[in-house]
Every structure is written in structure tokens, then in C-alpha cells.
């Protein structure tokens, strides 16, 4: 999925949207990245984000919005399989990698490194 130039283009454009929000709105990075995640979830809900991933590969997978998409997809998939309770049980199926890696590598770095300031 994706190609080098679609990854570059789409990834770059998504980041440009982020930069415009950083510079032109009073919202903090925390707000804006949360917004991206929610947007990814909504786009995932209507099936559009998967098509973006197909087209742009890493250009759609790496932005934080894909995290929202993965959570939404997980919830929907499990709900389709096992009923409405699947919304609670299936959510982290597809995204455990991101959170697990962040925790493990963050923890290891905290053991090895000191803040440089």
C-alpha cells in the first residue's frame, strides 16, 4: 500500500494542516493532536481512512490520526462480530503496538537517559 511519493505528499499535507492549526489558532499542541485523533476516528467510521492508507501507505499510517482510525475500526469490527459489547472489548486490538511500544521504549529511555534541558 502506498508509494514513496504518495507517502511524502499525504504525510506532508497532513502535517501542514497541523502547522496551520498550531500557528493560526490559540489551541495547544495537545488540543490539536487530540483533534487529529478524533478526526481519524470519524474518518475511520465512515470508511474513508482505510482508503487513505491504501493510497498513501505510511503517509496515512504514521500521523496520529491513524491511531483514532485504528481504535474506531477495532470497536466496529468486534461489534460486528460479537454484538454491541464488542465496542468495549475490541477497541485496542489493532492499536496495542503504538501504546505498548511507547510505554516500553519511553520507560527504557527513562532508565538510560537524563534530561538535557
Amino acid at each position: 500500500m502506498g508509494s514513496y511519493w504518495t507517502a511524502f505528499l499525504v504525510g506532508g499535507l497532513i502535517c501542514v494542516i497541523g502547522q496551520l492549526l498550531f500557528d493560526l489558532t490559540p489551541f495547544t499542541p495537545g488540543h490539536i493532536l487530540t483533534g487529529f485523533t478524533v478526526a481519524g476516528g470519524i474518518l475511520g467510521g465512515v470508511g474513508l481512512y482505510d482508503r487513505l492508507i491504501e493510497f498513501a501507505g505510511a503517509g496515512a499510517l504514521l500521523p496520529i490520526s491513524s491511531f483514532g482510525n485504528a481504535l474506531a475500526k477495532g470497536a466496529m469490527a468486534e461489534a460486528a462480530r460479537s454484538g454491541i459489547l464488542g465496542v468495549l472489548t475490541g477497541m485496542f486490538e489493532l492499536t496495542s503496538t503504538g501504546i505498548t511500544s511507547a510505554i516500553i521504549f519511553g520507560f527504557i529511555m527513562a532508565i538510560i537517559f537524563n534530561p538535557k534541558g
Binding site: G2, A7, F8, G11, A58, L61
Partner: peptide, 12 residues
């Protein structure tokens, strides 16, 4: 952003 995603594409 484009660069990081391109590197990501290479890793993928």
C-alpha cells in the same frame, strides 16, 4: 512530515 512518512514507507 513528508520526509518522516517517506522513511516510514521505506520501513514498511
Amino acid at each position: 512530515g513528508g520526509g518522516i512518512c517517506t522513511i516510514g514507507q521505506a520501513i514498511l
